[in-house]
Design a protein around this nucleic acid. Sequence first.
DNA 1: TTGTATGCGTTATCAC
DNA 2: GTGATAACGCATACAA
Lengths: 342, 342
Amino acid sequence: MQKGATLKDVARLAGVSVATVSRVINGHANVSPRTKAAVERAIVKLNYSPNTIARSLVTGRTGIISLIIVQEDPIVPSTWSYELPLVQSIHDYLKAQDWEIQIAMCSYREFQEPGFLHRYLTRNTVDGVLIMAAWMVERHVVSELKTRQLPYVVLGSHDPDYESICIEYDNEGAIRALVQHLRDAGHQVFGHIGGPTHQLHMNQRLQGFLSALEEFGLPTWQRLTKFGDSNVETGYRVMQEFLAGEPRPTAVVCGNDDIAAGAMNAITEKGLRIPEDIAVVGFDDTVVSQVVTPKLTTVRMPLNKAGVLAAQLLMDELSQPNRERKRIVLPCEIVIRASSLS
Amino acid sequence: MQKGATLKDVARLAGVSVATVSRVINGHANVSPRTKAAVERAIVKLNYSPNTIARSLVTGRTGIISLIIVQEDPIVPSTWSYELPLVQSIHDYLKAQDWEIQIAMCSYREFQEPGFLHRYLTRNTVDGVLIMAAWMVERHVVSELKTRQLPYVVLGSHDPDYESICIEYDNEGAIRALVQHLRDAGHQVFGHIGGPTHQLHMNQRLQGFLSALEEFGLPTWQRLTKFGDSNVETGYRVMQEFLAGEPRPTAVVCGNDDIAAGAMNAITEKGLRIPEDIAVVGFDDTVVSQVVTPKLTTVRMPLNKAGVLAAQLLMDELSQPNRERKRIVLPCEIVIRASSLS
DNA sequence: TTGTATGCGTTATCAC
DNA sequence: GTGATAACGCATACAA
């Protein structure tokens, strides 16, 4: 059970120096075809493969990207259906380029703690960082990364001064499109059941909702603009409140599909019909939107595209540092189904 | 911008040798309180922290666990809602013990390729491996790991000879409980719409279904035992077939919640009622089961427990190698809702 | 084109 | 208790 051949072993067998072997392995020029062949034979014979750790020690590079997944606290299951597709596409892209991924999951509170990222990065040597977050990335985090000259990309959020490379979704535009769609169908009284507004995207959806109403000259109602957790229970509970008072909304825009599903439960339970009495729309295009009755109008985010793009930009940054700040806002597609068709 | 102090710097400042500093850092005995204090002062002053790579090179340990996520090919979204909770609990447990996680996602085809794991493990130095898979782990994979003497745990599957430490779910027992529940409600004609049977758990659910029917002296019908992909479409399509022929099932056991949701669509579309005309049950207790109408009876798997247990067993193995093989089958809980209540 | 020698930052084995 | 010093496996500047 040979415990791994080393450069020296290969050199000895090939009758050359370790430097030459190293050159062959790293594809340097200036090595004669003859010796190159000899070295390669030796490598095959000894089944040699370079020691990644030793290589990292001398080069200072590890070939590892840290994927930091910043999460709600406590964790909300609905975010999982959103995170894994991203992880998947990021992983696939990076893997194709022979990069490895180290993941770090943490709550947004943890991530914001002054020492957290610092500690993490001093303990772990990585070549780049990909931050998946739904919260503003604070200045001290940015400065930690800049100080270390560590290439990084923010996915799903940004920093206060837009000093980073970041990728976001056009939540506002998507909500605007939904509102327009509903207005075109004649709706006048809109309700909104949002998720936690400390989440950037939930806040953007709220803002999009309010500004769309304003743009279209539609009234807004304080009591019809509510928030809660991003789950079925919130949708159910808030919708019950909506139904118990006046005015009653004829269209309800929800922060995500789970909330919408809860709202639908409350509506049908009251004996009201969707969409005839009240139209409901969600966000995220999860499987939930396809199994509720009627099927749910929702928004499909370009998750795969976002993940690939994030990985791509990080690679760019890695190969050619000091690129300027950049902000990309990806458009989302609205998916119209029965829950909003009159 | 000091690019990181080294042991040597600390030693110089503290007026001792690097060996002594190393001893202090690693908490060795035989170092006088006086010099220890001096060293610690120097460490703080220089803001020193050890270089993980260099340490790994000499110790041969990295503090990294590889989490290999083996997936359906092509990827099925419904698996995401199942995988991330596991990743989450594994991560949380390992993080608490200062281990880092490197993830590798691959299709089950890739994972079964003779060279795949070998290549991965020679490129990546990790201290242990956690394999998340729904497919039998082939012998050559086991032998690769054993040869390297690399501690590993299999989560969600096992190997042909049960030579590994593995954690599974009692799929058969859960299905048996469901069938019993339905039989007690008077059902006699059962249908099954399963996922891909090359997945271990889907196969176990099928076997559980068949053996439960046999145990309870209920008839099985070839045309009512079908499979497809683990999605809504399969459930819808197969249920339509069931409804188009004879006998018509009065209870349908589905491979997962998505399939069940599809089946429910087909049933209500025909003007039939659930559960009065046909009862439906799913598996996984995803959010889908809570948003369909009526709510879906399903099975809740102890995902969190499984993840923690897997991490725990891996840690045990790491600290005390050569433990014997082990197979743990975790019981699942059936969650009874309206879709099966008569 | 190739070889020698040095360093990367640790830990560990010796002596003292 | 403490300090030299040899590994660990590799890349590379410099010589040849």
